[in-house]
């Protein structure tokens, strides 16, 4: 754990360095383009988180072990956090580049719906009642929501005709230094995700231990 924390800290520093100093300034957008790296980092983590929600939801339905449920819940929460960051950074990036905070571009629409879906996931959990219900209903919703995403994306594309290329700085070629900065950032964010996920699962473990002791002792 200590090593992991150190690695994460170190790679975050490296990422900040490479984003702000190492990577060249983009010619058309200028410094604003540097938002892009962290934006990609957050969307990358959010994607991993939601894939993990999907996988652990399936595993929970199959095995019904608390571990999978904790994993799904913790990933979903982190996913919501990071997708929120994605939308905020993306919006701030879009304002100077596209001249608007928000457009109903397919990628944005899909991200927005993804965000709503996993907020609904959290609402469902809090409304579900006891632990077994929470876990099972959330797992069902997690699976259905994930299956829905490709269709949401395709239908958002259909509504707007063919989408312009959004990702990739300016849609043009990417300098090798930028690529390195991006990769370092993705690595740093992945490590950050693992650290946060572990902390989050620890909290659930602690809650479980406390409630099981209480149950045994009848406090």
């Amino acid at each position: 754990m200590r090593i992991l924390l150190g690695l994460t800290f170190f790679s975050m520093i490296a990422s900040i360095y490479s984003v702000f100093i190492y990577a060249p300034t983009e010619q058309i957008m200028g410094h604003v383009q540097r938002i892009f790296y962290f934006h990609m980092g957050t969307v990358w983590v959010a994607t991993i988180a939601f894939i993990m929600v999907f996988i652990s939801s399936i595993q929970y339905l199959r095995k019904e072990s608390r571990r999978w449920d904790k994993l799904a819940y913790s990933s979903a929460e982190l996913g919501v956090l990071f997708i929120t960051l994605t939308i905020i950074t993306g919006s701030i990036w879009a304002k100077p580049v596209w001249g608007t905070w928000w457009t109903w571009d397919p990628q944005l629409t899909t991200t927005f719906i993804l965000w709503i879906l996993y907020i609904v996931y959290m609402i469902l959990r809090s409304a579900a009642g006891d632990d077994a219900k929470k876990a099972k209903f959330a797992a069902v919703f997690g699976i259905i929501a994930f299956l829905d995403l490709p269709l949401v994306y395709i239908s958002a594309r259909m509504m707007r005709g063919i989408s312009p290329v959004v990702f990739g700085p300016g849609g043009g070629g990417i300098a090798p230094e930028m690529m390195i900065a991006l990769l370092v950032t993705l690595l740093a964010f992945t490590l950050l995700f693992i650290v946060l996920l572990k902390q989050r699962i620890d909290i659930e473990d602690l809650k479980d231990r406390i409630s099981s002791i209480r149950l045994e002792e009848g406090i």
Binding site: V32, I35, H39, L81, L85, I88, L196, Q199, D202, L206
Partner: peptide, 29 residues
């Protein structure tokens, strides 16, 4: 430049609040 600053600021503030909250919950538990 201003936009970059705000994006970074908001990013770090939200991340720190979340992390702080995690650690605090963990400790109190």
């Amino acid at each position: 430049m201003v936009y970059l600053f705000w994006a970074q600021l908001i990013f770090w503030v939200i991340l720190c609040i979340y992390t702080y909250d995690l650690i605090r919950k963990n400790q109190s538990l």
